[in-house]
Computed example of a mutant assay.
Amino acid sequence: MDKIKVLFVCIHNSARSQMAEAFLKKYGGDRFCAESAGLEPGKLNPIVVEVMKESGIDISQNKTKSVFDFFKQGNLYNYVITVCNEAESEKCPIFPGIAKKLHWGFVDPSSFSGSMEEKLSKTREVRNQIDRKVKDWIKLV
C-alpha cells in the first residue's frame, strides 16, 4: 500500500508545521510520509525546539523549507494541511493531483510575548493542541 503523503504548511515553517510534521512521523508509522514547508521560510524557533525535546522529539537539525519549492518540484500530496491562520492559509499554492486541503488553525508561537517561562508555557499549549489534533486525525484517515 502506498504511503499517505502529507504536507503541513504555515508562514515561516519555524514552529507549527514543524511540530505537526514531527508528530505525524512519530505516530503515523509506515502509513504516512510527512513533510512541512512555509510560505516565507524563516529560522527554526528555538522555543519550539525546546518544547519538542520535552516530548522526546529532537527537531534541532530540521531546516525550514519553501512550499513554493515543493510546488515547483511537482511534489504530489494526498493532504495539504495549513496550520496557520485562515488568511495566511489562502496564500498557499494549490498542488496538482488529488490533494485534499485541510485547515487546522493554531496560534503562532512567534507571536508570544512575556518572560521566557511564559513563552515556553504558551508554546507547550500549542504543541499539545497539535499533538492531539494529529493523533485524532490519524484515527480518521
Rank of each mutant, 00 (worst) to 15 (best):
R132L: 13
G97Y: 11
M19C: 06
G42D: 03
V48Q: 13
C84G: 02
G42M: 08
N128C: 04
S111R: 12
R132F: 05
V48R: 08
L7K: 03
N75L: 13
S17L: 06
E40V: 12
I138C: 09
D131S: 12
E54W: 11
R124Q: 05
K135R: 15
K119G: 02
W137H: 10
E88K: 01
R132T: 09
H103C: 05
K43P: 00
S14D: 04
S89M: 00
E88P: 01
L120F: 01
A37C: 13
F68E: 12
D108P: 02
K63F: 09
A87S: 03
Y77H: 07
N85A: 00
K5R: 15
K101C: 06
N128W: 05
A37M: 09
K43Q: 10
G38W: 09
N128R: 11
R31I: 01
D131T: 04
F68Y: 15
S111A: 13
M116I: 07
R124I: 06
E35Y: 07
S115N: 05
K122H: 04
P46G: 00
G38Y: 10
N45A: 04
P41W: 02
R31L: 11
F71W: 15
E125L: 14
K65I: 10
D2P: 15
A22K: 08
V67C: 15
L76S: 13
A15R: 04
K100W: 03
W104C: 06
S66G: 10
H103A: 03
L76T: 15
C10L: 06
T64R: 06
I130T: 11
E35K: 15
L102A: 00
M52V: 02
V6T: 09
G97S: 11
T123R: 06
G105A: 10
G29R: 14
V67K: 12
K101W: 04
N62F: 13
W137C: 06
K72E: 13
K43S: 06
W137Q: 11
K5W: 00
D108H: 07
E35T: 11
E35M: 14
K133E: 14
N62Q: 14
K72L: 10
F112Q: 08
P46C: 00
E118Q: 15
Y77D: 10
S89L: 01
C84M: 02
E118H: 04
D108T: 02
K135W: 01
G56D: 12
A20V: 11
C10R: 05
E90A: 12
I138F: 07
F8C: 10
A87L: 03
F112P: 11
M52P: 00
M1G: 13
N85C: 11
N13G: 13
S113K: 14
Q61W: 03
P41C: 05
V134Y: 01
G28V: 12
K101G: 02
C33P: 00
R124W: 04
G29F: 09
I130W: 03
M19H: 04
M116F: 07
R127Y: 09
N13H: 11
F8A: 09
I98T: 14
G42R: 03
F106V: 06
C10K: 00
T123M: 04
C84E: 03
N75Q: 14
T64W: 07
D108M: 01
I138Q: 07
K5S: 12
S60N: 05
F112R: 06
Q18R: 08
I11A: 01
C33L: 14
N13K: 05
E86I: 00
E54I: 01
